[in-house]
Design a protein around this nucleic acid. Structure first.
Length: 343
DNA sequence: TATTCGTGGGA
DNA sequence: TTCCCAAGAAT
C-alpha cells in the first residue's frame, strides 16, 4: 500500500475519531445529510443540527414531502441556506427519479443539487465503499504540507493538482477508514495553527516538517478589504408581534424570514399603505446594527414602527406575523434575531 | 474563474 | 478586539 494510506489507516485505529454521530452507519441518506451540513462548517457546530434534523426527517421520503418552512427552521443558524434549498430539491429527485434509492456513482451524485465533487466522493466512499477521493479543508492542509505546496490551496490550479495527488494516494481497500483518517489527522494533529507534528504518522516523509515550513503551509488566502453594504429594514410591530417577509431566492438569507427591506425610509408611509392597507403608525425608534460576515459587513439601518390602528391579520403571501417570544425558534437569520433582541 | 453564499469558535 | 477560517458548491 502507498505510504500515506498505510500510515494514516494504522494511525486511525488508535488515535482517530470514532464517535461522531454519522460514523458507524452506512445509510446513504444520513451520510448525505451530514456531508451537506459539514460543508464549510465545523463538526462541533453541525452535531446538534444533524441530530435534530434526522430525528424530524429520518428518511429521504420524510424530507421530500416536508414543509419548506419546517426544513428552514431546522437549518436556521447553521448558515449557507442554499444548502437547505438544495437538499429539498435533491430529496424530491431521489424519491421521484431514483425510487428513493441513492445512486452509488460519483457521476450521478454530481448531477444532484448541492453535491459537488468532494461531497460526491465522500458519499461514495462512506456509503458504498467506492474508491473515490475527497478534498476538504483538512485533506488540502495535509497534502499541502506533506508535499510542500507553497501556493494558496484555494487557487484553481492548486486545487487541480491536489485532486490529482488525492487520486494517486487512494488505497484499494479500507476506503472508509482512509477517508476518515485523513480528515481526523487534519482536524486533530495537522491543524491550521500549532500542528502537533511530534505525533504525526506522516512525519518522516513530510516535506513541511523536514523543512520546518508547517507555519507557512498552507499559504493564507489573499486578503481583500471588506466592503460595507447598507440595508434599510422596517421593524413593524403590533400586538407584541413582528412582521416578517420571506427572503427571495439568490439573495443573502435565501428562504428565511426576515424584517422587510425597504429601498428608502421615505417610502415608509407608502409601504405600510400598500402592504397592510394602513395609514396610522408611529416610528418609535431609529437606529443601526452592524453584522459582520466573512466577505462583507452589513449595516442594518432600521426604523421601529408601532401600528396604532386596529386591523385584521389577513394572510399576505410571503409575509408572516410572529409573536416576539417565538422569534428565537423560527427560521430567522441570526443577525436579525440579535437586532430584535435589542429593540 | 472569482465571487457569493453564514455562523461560531479559536488564537 | 480583531482576524482567520471551517467535512464546498453554484454561478
Amino acid at each position: 500500500m502507498q505510504y500515506i494510506a498505510e500510515k494514516v489507516i494504522t494511525w486511525h485505529k488508535s488515535s482517530g475519531r470514532h464517535d461522531l454521530p454519522w460514523q458507524k452507519i452506512n445509510d446513504p441518506y444520513l451520510i448525505w445529510i451530514s456531508e451537506i451540513m459539514l460543508q464549510q462548517t465545523q463538526v462541533s457546530s453541525v452535531i446538534p443540527y444533524y441530530q435534530r434534523f434526522i430525528k424530524t426527517f429520518p428518511t429521504v421520503e420524510k424530507l421530500a414531502f416536508a414543509d419548506h418552512d419546517v426544513v428552514m427552521k431546522h437549518w436556521s443558524g447553521l448558515g449557507y441556506y442554499r444548502r437547505a434549498k438544495f437538499i429539498m430539491q435533491t430529496a424530491k429527485i431521489i424519491v421521484q427519479q431514483y425510487q428513493s434509492k441513492f445512486p452509488d456513482s460519483v457521476e450521478k451524485l454530481l448531477s444532484l443539487p448541492g453535491i459537488g465533487k468532494s461531497t460526491a466522493g465522500a458519499i461514495c466512499a462512506f456509503a458504498f465503499g467506492g474508491i473515490e477521493p475527497i478534498m476538504d479543508a483538512n485533506v488540502k492542509r495535509v497534502f499541502c504540507r506533506f508535499y510542500g505546496i507553497m501556493e494558496w490551496p484555494g487557487k484553481a490550479q492548486t486545487q487541480k493538482y491536489l485532486w490529482s495527488l488525492a487520486e494517486q494516494n487512494l488505497p484499494s481497500n479500507n476506503i472508509q477508514i482512509y477517508t476518515q483518517a485523513l480528515m481526523d489527522l487534519g482536524a486533530t494533529l495537522c491543524k491550521g495553527s500549532q500542528p502537533v507534528c511530534s505525533q504525526c504518522p506522516l512525519q518522516l516523509k513530510c516535506v513541511s516538517f523536514k523543512s520546518n515550513l508547517c507555519h507557512v503551509i498552507p499559504a493564507k488566502k489573499p486578503k481583500k478589504t471588506l466592503i460595507t453594504k447598507q440595508v434599510n429594514v422596517l421593524i413593524v410591530e403590533a400586538n407584541n408581534q413582528i412582521l416578517f417577509q420571506k427572503r427571495s431566492d439568490s439573495s443573502v438569507w435565501e428562504g428565511l424570514w426576515s424584517t422587510p427591506e425597504i429601498q428608502d425610509f421615505s417610502y415608509t408611509k407608502k409601504w405600510i399603505k400598500d402592504v397592510l392597507g394602513l395609514t396610522k403608525f408611529n416610528v418609535v425608534k431609529q437606529g443601526a446594527h452592524l453584522a459582520i460576515f466573512s466577505h462583507y459587513k452589513l449595516q442594518l439601518n432600521y426604523n421601529h414602527i408601532l401600528l396604532t390602528e386596529t386591523f385584521s391579520h389577513q394572510q399576505l403571501k410571503d409575509f408572516l406575523w410572529i409573536d416576539r417570544p417565538k422569534i428565537g425558534g423560527e427560521g430567522i437569520p441570526t443577525p436579525i434575531k440579535k437586532l430584535l433582541q435589542n429593540i
